[in-house]
């Protein structure tokens, strides 16, 4: 009866009440930031004396914001491609392979996800200073690739789990080369896993702050770094405007993801 909504009795209201409150709690900052971005007060007084689109104007007239958004996009795109390719291979190995230390290897591959990012950031920063990769785009990409890869391996791995390998073997016996079989049979069959890997990898890089703070240079800043440094120097409502656009971007991504999922089902 506890798992039947209509038979919960008074418990039902406790559950529903908590859920509603949590939803409000989760939505509050998101709605608030959108409202703040239209407020006229330079000093974040809320509710503001009047409403304005001035901060969006400032956002678009300052080329540094656009540049940093493009940098983010560029880095996240490269990270996504590399993460999906390397993650696919690694997942194949972990999923199909039968070699000693496989589980150890899996744990090692997932460690960057669980390790506090600040430790990785500090370690990589020191290492990159020594080998001359600090503040460079490749350095940035490597750093983000490390934390994106576990998401790829998990997502593709679970898709491979659900894929019957004998279909691939059949293709090989019918004359396809192993790679032909993988690319033309396996890859399409696990496309949802690849898509999930791509989305998570992209977000892992696009939203990442801590590594980015250590990898950035004055000429190489991603959007989160730009927001971070603006936040620390200046609480201007321009940050609210930038954040609101990011939230919109998130919603668009969510809708696309939902459509893709729906398309797959039908």
């Amino acid at each position: 009866m506890l798992l039947d909504f209509d038979k919960l009795g008074a418990w039902k209201w406790l559950l529903v009440g908590t859920t509603v409150l949590v939803c409000l709690f989760l939505l509050l900052p998101i709605v608030f930031i959108a409202a703040l971005s239209f407020g006229s007060s330079r000093w974040l007084i809320f509710p503001p004396p009047s409403w304005t689109t001035r901060w969006y104007g400032e956002l678009f007239s300052d080329s540094r914001w656009l540049t940093s958004a493009l940098t983010s996009l560029q880095i996240a795109s490269v990270v996504t491609v590399l993460s999906v390719v390397i993650g696919f291979l690694a997942a194949l190995g972990l999923n199909r392979g039968s070699f000693a230390g496989k589980e150890l290897l899996r744990a090692l591959f997932l460690t960057p996800m669980i390790l506090p990012v600040v430790v990785l950031a500090v370690a990589l920063y020191a290492f990159f200073l020594q080998i001359g990769l600090a503040g460079t785009t490749p350095g940035f990409i490597i750093a983000h690739l490390l934390i994106a890869l576990p998401f790829s391996i998990i997502s593709i791995g679970s898709a491979l789990d659900g894929f019957d390998k004998s279909i691939e073997d059949a293709a090989i016996l019918c004359g396809a080369s192993p790679w032909e079989a993988r690319l033309r049979v396996t890859v399409p069959a696990i496309s949802h896993g690849l898509f999930g890997a791509a989305v998570f990898s992209f977000l892992a890089s696009w939203d990442e702050v801590v590594l980015a703070i250590f990898m950035a240079s004055p000429t190489l800043q991603t959007l989160p770094v730009k927001i971070w440094s603006t936040l620390r120097q200046d609480l201007t409502p321009v940050i609210a405007a930038a954040s609101t656009l990011l939230i919109l971007f998130t919603i668009v991504l969510m809708v696309i993801a939902a459509l893709v999922r729906k398309g797959r089902k039908s």
Partner: peptide, 14 residues
């Protein structure tokens, strides 16, 4: 050298 190789590999020299 390291930096150049990586830059070339990734093909993204600003």
């Amino acid at each position: 050298l390291v930096a150049t190789v990586f830059t070339a590999l990734v093909g993204l020299s600003g």
